[in-house]
Design a protein around this nucleic acid. Structure first.
Lengths: 341, 341
DNA sequence: TTGTAGGCGTTATCAA
DNA sequence: TTGATAACGCCTACAA
């Protein structure tokens, strides 16, 4: 039987109201009383019952993050790093982090959001991997539930968010590839309505234009952000009559699969075919060969989203409601060619 | 304002008690009434308030996992995969998963366990990375809180757990190394009182014995399961007058750092120095060169721990309270030598 | 400065 | 088969 506020009050010969206030730091308590209460509570190992407190205060003291994926992707370094940031930052706040998974856009996803909101399981949400016209944003806005987001969609609605200059980053990457001597670039993208895919693809096109290279639709393949889809895409590319000499991937995870496939086919990444990713996950340093990528501080972004959400939930003003991050181009061996001469 | 049970009752002209029972599937409700209630509840979007339910039922409907680390290690593939398993399995159960981090053995860790227990935040725990005489086991046992564990410690106490045949696996690995032609093996271990370290080290010694190789204490280095500690260890090894020709690591993450360091030093893993890990994380397939390792089904183990915990919490009998898993030796390029002749 | 008391939304006991 | 009603543990007007 856990010790309740009653037990503490009884032991001290005080009312539970006094104990409650003493512990919560109300000013109208005699200093001596407060100290006695605090000490006794500690000695007895008293911790307020969470459910009772939540019921009374009408707050869950928890925030939620629902991983937008059909299969668990915690092992995907991007998500792993995002979770690092969320969890780590959350430990510095007086609320918990609840995590679940739901396939984006389907009914189960809607139900879980509705359920968490309606049952007051969480007070706010962190979103990422936004889609065009993301229904989550409409839903949470309508419900008046605080949330922060990585990426930006549904631009009519206002909410605190962090975004990456995906387009600019891609332009820079393509420029690098061009100057490294690659001429025929392929792009392996993600789901069609994913904001980050759209922006990165746009950057890819602009980059080609700037570099004076042509955009070939047959070299623009669809994936789903998994390494497996990168692997499959390379196998498809293999059959083309006029194959690319470099492959730009929507994210690092896709690029890992590409490296794997090239390896199997006996092609040397970098030398034979350039490969680049996006995100700058840790694993990209250890690949064979090390992967060129556009680095974004994923854990730090997640941390910041939590901090912004904390402000939002307590109705404090945000310094900035929109933060834009510049990705950093990391050139590694996977896009280095030893040109003859 | 979320809709409460009162709203539903009022709309139907029934008492809240009836609504509650109809929804919870009690038998003493007219079939027609039940159907009306269920439909109306659905239409109104009613979901029971979690806090109220918890308070009344004295259950949190949540399980906890506290990552035993001083720094967030979600990006460590081992933990990432463990979390995949926990989260994925939890979605199939009527409870949530709460996650936090705490440095093992220190006071903050104790406080967080005590807090979660005392405030009834969770109904049970999943533990891993057990230590010799792990205080968590004593504490939870004494409190009567259900838990399941990966690894086995405090053998006087009985609790459902899964363990790996660490020792046997290591013996097999060392045998493989010996027959591949490696003669001077180093071992990079983990914290001294970590069960898995102790068992794996024991296996390493026995393996050497079996293979007729000698155990050299100066080749037995301490690490902390991070890739960084693997990296550092190689740098120390570098200064030895009689360096090893193979490095066995307590886990894959350590081995990643070893590969990195060898790379930097211009040594070819496999050819010049054999490298092996333990755990079989996904990333081990993509390293340069692919890593030899002892594979254990980490996500599946985590899933199973949740299932076992679910039984434990509902006082159902366990089929087996102890499950032993045999690691599978995956021989890859990092321990393949092209011997002359 | 402290105590009394009502109620947060549910579930469970008892009576009708 | 259904309806009052009393908790669960805590917080907070309001009264003393």
């Amino acid at each position: 039987m856990p010790v309740t506020i009653r037990d503490v009050a009884q032991k001290l010969g005080l009312s539970i109201a006094t104990v409650s206030r003493a512990l919560d730091g109300y000013p109208d308590i005699a200093l001596e009383t407060r100290q006695r209460v605090q000490q006794t509570a500690r000695e007895m190992g008293y911790t307020p019952n969470r459910a009772a407190r939540q019921l009374r205060r009408k707050k869950a003291d928890a925030i939620g993050y629902i991983l937008p994926s059909d299969t668990p992707r915690f092992a995907d370094p991007y998500y792993a790093e995002f979770l690092v940031g969320l969890s780590d930052e959350t430990t510095h706040h007086p609320f918990d982090l609840l995590i679940s998974i739901a396939s984006p856009g389907n009914e189960a996803e809607q139900r879980i959001y509705e359920n968490w909101v309606q049952s007051r399981k969480v007070d706010g949400f962190v979103l990422n991997r936004l889609r065009r016209n993301d229904w989550r944003i409409q839903f949470l806005s309508k419900q008046g539930i605080p949330f922060t987001a990585f990426e930006h969609a549904n631009e009519a609605l206002d909410y605190p968010h962090i975004m990456v200059d995906n387009t600019g980053g891609m332009v820079e990457l393509v420029q690098h590839l061009a100057s490294a001597g690659y001429r025929r670039l392929a792009y392996i993208g993600g789901p069609e309505d994913l904001i980050l895919h759209l922006e990165r693809l746009e950057g890819f096109r602009r980059g080609l234009e700037t570099a004076g290279l042509s955009f070939d639709l047959s070299l623009c393949l669809a994936g789903d952000l998994t390494s497996d889809s990168g692997y499959q895409a390379v196998k498809r590319i293999h059959w083309l009559t006029n194959p690319p000499d470099a492959i730009v991937c929507v994210n690092d995870e896709t690029a890992l699969g590409v490296l794997h496939a090239l390896h199997e086919m006996g092609l040397k990444a970098g030398q034979d075919v350039g490969v680049a990713g996006f995100d700058g996950v840790q694993a990209s340093r250890h690949t064979d060969p090390p992967l060129t990528t556009l680095d974004i501080p994923v854990p730090e972004i997640a941390r910041r989203l939590v901090r912004m959400l904390a402000l939002e939930m307590t109705h404090q003003p945000q310094a900035e409601r929109q933060i834009i991050i510049q990705p950093r181009l990391l050139v590694r061996e996977s896009t280095r060619r030893n040109l003859p001469g």
